[in-house]
């Protein structure tokens, strides 16, 4: 069975009604106006055709084409009534757009009068190909914006939708020690996940910096450990834990520039003694516990409140 792919625009021309895109403020002309005045009317209003109204009744359509034909015929000046198109293709306000598009295609006409379904002489508006295109574009733009808002919201209501007295989402990454090839990969995955959860870019960036530095520390100094991000409605806790060797002097380790990293690490662009200071700088609360021979536990807290919704 052949499958036909329906494009978004095709779907839209079926869903949308003529009334949504037509021009309601229509410039009209009376049937007794002489042809010689038509050029001026068209030019003044920057249009190429217009409906002819006898009182309130739609009696025809006159266009630039009719005017050119009149010129070519070198006919005498006379009322528009004599040169206008009387057998009109019309559409109703509640017709689907696809019907109008079909009529444009079949007839080659530039405009279709929109009339009352019960009274085909009652003019409600005019529809040009331009109206159709503009209408579709506007609808696309609105749909696009709504989609953006919806996506944004899905992300933001994530925690509001979760019904519980206490909610926490824990993401854990196992970091291998001394494996420099993979170093940073866990932070990379954490960062992407936070993005998908709809955490604001500024907060994601701060968490990513802290997590990356913490991960580097685990790789460089320990035989491995875990990186955990605990996401709660109000706070995001980043925890790096390992089981050794521990930090001899925490106060020194927190000094920018103090480093015990081996040269090979420095050659890779790290180990300059900026790790812990960077983590401390990027988070709202910083705690570190370490015992020689036992291990280190580092907790960086980020207060979510405003930041979570921050999309800047």
């Amino acid at each position: 069975m052949p499958s036909t792919r329906i494009t978004k625009t095709q779907e839209m021309v079926y869903e949308m009604k003529v009334g949504e895109v037509m021009t309601r403020q229509v410039i009209t002309v009376r049937p007794d106006v002489p042809m010689s005045r038509l050029r001026g009317i068209l030019r003044q209003n920057r249009i190429s055709g217009l409906p002819v109204l006898d009182g309130q009744r739609l009696v025809g359509l006159i266009s630039l084409e009719d005017f050119i034909k009149w010129l070519a015929d070198r006919a005498e000046d006379g009322p528009i009534r004599q040169r206008m198109t009387q057998h009109l293709e019309k559409v109703s306000e509640d017709d689907p757009l696809v019907l109008a598009v079909g009529k444009f295609d079949k007839s080659g006409l530039g405009r279709l009068p929109v009339v009352d379904r019960n009274d085909p002489t009652k003019l409600l508006g005019i529809l040009t190909k331009g109206d159709v295109i503009e209408g579709l574009l506007k609808k696309l733009e609105i749909d696009y914006q709504q989609e953006q808002i919806r996506r944004h919201r899905t992300a933001h209501v994530f925690f509001e939708d979760v019904q519980a007295d206490r909610t926490a989402l824990v993401l854990q990454y196992d970091v291998k020690g001394q494996d420099f090839g993979q170093a940073g990969a866990s932070s990379s995955r954490l960062k992407q996940t936070l993005h998908r959860l709809g955490v604001g870019p500024n907060l994601v960036r701060r968490v990513a910096i802290a997590s990356f530095e913490a991960e580097m520390n685990l790789v460089v100094f320990t035989s491995g450990g875990t990186l955990r991000a605990k996401i709660q409605p109000e706070t995001l806790l980043l925890e790096a834990a390992d089981s050794g060797p521990g930090i001899a002097d925490i106060a020194c380790a927190l000094e920018p520039g103090y480093s015990t990293a081996p040269d090979w690490v420095r050659e890779l662009g790290f180990g300059a003694g900026m790790g812990l200071p960077n983590i401390r700088k990027s988070c709202d609360r910083f705690e570190i516990d370490s015992a020689l021979g036992k291990g280190t536990r580092l907790t960086a807290s980020f207060f979510v409140n405003e930041n979570f919704h921050d999309i800047s």
Partner: peptide, 10 residues
Amino acid sequence: VHVIRTCEMV
């Protein structure tokens, strides 16, 4: 590769 990972972070 850490240069790339770093750039990805920020």
